[in-house]
């Protein structure tokens, strides 16, 4: 089974990486990193801080865009073009196919993010800065977040039309970054009848803020690596849930 998943992941990765859409998105991210220097010049604050803040936010958007493009549209494209026929008519289960697809898409997303992150590090060094521990943590956090977003996009892609899946992924990404608001709703005590619900929702919903170190980077706060590790574990668990759901749905789907 592992071999087949690896083969499918490799094929998906190559297919995604050679697609011009991905190249355009990666170039856009690179452009954002380079443009951050201009904002740094205009900023009244620390120039380097501006570069880091703007670039990392740009990379977060890049992660979301990539998840939407590769995750939500990839499966629909396979079904529409019937490229999955030669794959699924072999000794391959639908679960293996979807797992391979997921890992391939995560690989493509991580490659783009890593390339853009690498460009950011070089950019910072070129302008006399020193990459901090928090900056590395922020970049790792973005990789962890994309792990979940690709899984969500793939799940929604098996469930509905790709455009709706892409919008759904975007909505999910925003919601997962705003779960802190649910806790605040519980704390302010204005609607006690809903407080249990908000509290439960806060505990159950994925919280990508656990792996968000962008603010820590710009505010030069210390990094708690255990927090990142726990966040990464949570992202991996949630990804398993969504990929598992996608497999269950795809097993019943007619292609």
């Amino acid at each position: 089974m592992r071999d087949r998943v690896v083969v499918l992941a490799r094929a998906t990765f190559l297919e995604a990486m050679r697609d011009k859409v991905l190249l355009v998105v990666a170039l856009f991210a690179l452009g954002l990193v380079l443009f951050s220097r201009v904002l740094g010049w205009l900023s009244v604050e620390d120039e380097l801080k501006m570069v880091q803040d703007f670039s990392l936010s740009g990379l977060a958007v890049l992660g979301l865009l990539l998840a939407m493009l590769v995750g939500a549209f990839s499966l629909a494209k396979e079904v529409e073009r019937r490229t999955l026929y030669p794959l699924l008519s072999r000794d391959v289960t639908r679960g293996e196919f979807l797992l391979g697809k997921y890992f391939g898409l995560v690989g493509a997303t991580w490659s783009c993010l890593a390339a853009a992150g690498g460009a950011l590090l070089v950019w910072i060094v070129l302008w006399g800065g020193q990459p901090t521990e928090a900056l590395f943590a922020a970049l790792l956090g973005l990789l962890c977040e994309s792990l979940l977003l690709v899984a969500v996009a793939l799940f929604l892609g098996t469930l509905t039309a790709p455009a709706i899946a892409a919008i759904g992924t975007c909505g999910f990404a925003l919601a997962a970054r705003s779960t802190e608001a649910l806790r605040e709703l519980c704390a302010d005590g204005r609607s006690p009848e809903f407080s249990t619900f908000w509290s439960l929702a806060y505990k159950l919903l994925p919280n990508t803020e656990d792996v968000n170190f962008i603010n820590a980077t710009t505010a030069q706060l210390p990094v708690h690596w255990s927090q990142l590790a726990m966040g990464a574990l949570a992202m991996a668990l949630w990804s398993t849930v969504f990929v598992g759901g996608a497999i269950l749905l795809f097993r019943r789907r007619e292609v």
Partner: peptide
């Protein structure tokens, strides 16, 4: 399906390979 070879009608494959 290990012993099966299948050519679909109007076949399409991963185009970047």
């Amino acid at each position: 399906r290990r012993a099966l070879g299948y050519l679909p009608e109007n076949p399409y494959f991963h185009e970047h390979l």
